[in-house]
């Protein structure tokens, strides 16, 4: 209540001094074409509270407010759950068109979800703003596994596509996509290999299945298996990002590219605006997110949450979204989850 009163007061002052303050808001060099935001900024997390998208949305909200980027306005997070974010996506496109004060968190998972759920709307119908963070994937095996390297593993899968049992998150999700990409790069029968993938709900189940011997290979976000790799229970074979990364082994684990396969996959998250917003609005939103990215508060959030900075904004983000859509759609079709 108090917070609200305060922010209203601040807004009133900001309005009163708008005449002279217009140019200096945010102390940026470029002249602000529109005053943005001019009311409460809505950030939609298209997933349940507590998940990755929700945490991103709430971190953004906090950084926006703590860094005073909102002209005294506040930001509000709303959850719309369901179907890999495509419910939220549909709502953004159908009910919020033209509203520059409504943002939505998105990510690679939504790109896949659009395909596997046969969603009527897709990400290219939104106004791309920026990508924010990314996480590599990691491929792990049990400590007593015969596969010492990624090559051992993929050779085995190539020789007999049903020999290797993979496990990770939901069917058609990032982990499953990586399995398809790996099989393809190794020249194995991608469709059959992808059928050997067992979907688990959440990291806990997949870890338990690795330890019990149900599955021989685990694929998940890089941080998921850190403890067990550190403890020597699991061995990390490769990470899917652009550069080697320490995932618990004490030394950096090589990338898939290092092992000689042309695969790079990042589980990225970003932010989009509804379709149909004016160019001026688009510039203003991008400017705001640029300022967010430059702020100390956002850098702190990245450190706290152990997120990797992965920033592309404006046209660069638009191009990236489109490239990812094309790539993911074709992989999913090849492993039999698309069409």
């Amino acid at each position: 209540m108090l917070k609200k009163v305060l922010s209203l007061a601040v807004a009133a002052i900001a309005l009163g001094t708008a005449g002279c303050a217009e140019q200096s808001v945010g102390e940026s060099n470029e002249p602000a074409a529109v005053t943005y935001p001019s009311k409460t900024l809505q950030i939609m997390a298209p997933a349940a509270a507590g998940g990755g998208w929700d945490t991103t949305a709430r971190s953004m909200q906090k950084a926006f407010q703590d860094a005073n980027l909102l002209n005294g306005q506040s930001a509000e997070v709303r959850n719309v759950t369901g179907a890999a974010g495509t419910i939220g996506l549909a709502e953004l496109v159908s009910s919020h068109a033209g509203n520059a004060h409504q943002l939505m968190i998105t990510g690679l998972v939504m790109v896949g979800g659009v395909v596997t759920n046969k969603s009527q709307v897709n990400l290219t119908q939104t106004t791309p703003i920026a990508t924010l963070t990314s996480e590599s994937e990691v491929v792990v095996v049990r400590k007593d596994s015969p596969y010492q390297t990624l090559k051992d593993l993929l050779d085995a899968a190539k020789a007999d596509p049903t020999a290797v049992k993979w496990g990770g998150g939901s069917a058609g999700g990032t982990d499953h996509i990586l399995v398809g990409l790996l099989a393809k790069a190794a020249g194995a029968d991608a469709k059959t290999v992808a059928k050997q993938y067992v979907a688990y709900s959440g990291g806990g189940e997949a870890k338990a299945a690795l330890l019990s011997g149900d599955i021989s290979v685990g694929v998940s976000g890089a941080s998921e298996f850190t403890d067990l790799v550190k403890a020597g229970e699991l061995r990390a074979l490769a990470v899917s990002g652009g550069s080697p990364e320490d995932v618990g082994a004490g030394s950096p684990t090589a990338t898939i590219k290092d092992a000689g396969y042309d695969v790079e996959l990042l589980n990225w998250r970003g932010v989009v605006a509804p379709p149909g917003i004016s160019d001026a609005d688009r510039t203003a939103v991008i400017g705001l997110v640029d300022k967010l990215h430059a702020s100390e508060q956002w850098k702190q959030a990245l450190t706290d949450k152990k997120w990797t900075d992965f920033y592309k904004s404006g046209d660069e983000a638009k191009a990236y979204f489109e490239a990812e859509s094309t790539r993911i759609t074709s992989v999913l079709a090849e492993i039999g989850l698309g069409q």
């Binding site: 507590g50 806990g204 870890k207 403890d227």
Partner: peptide, 12 residues
């Protein structure tokens, strides 16, 4: 002991 969450709350 194993870092395995077996419920939603444990995961959080």
């Amino acid at each position: 002991t194993l870092g395995i969450p077996t419920s939603a709350t444990a995961a959080v």
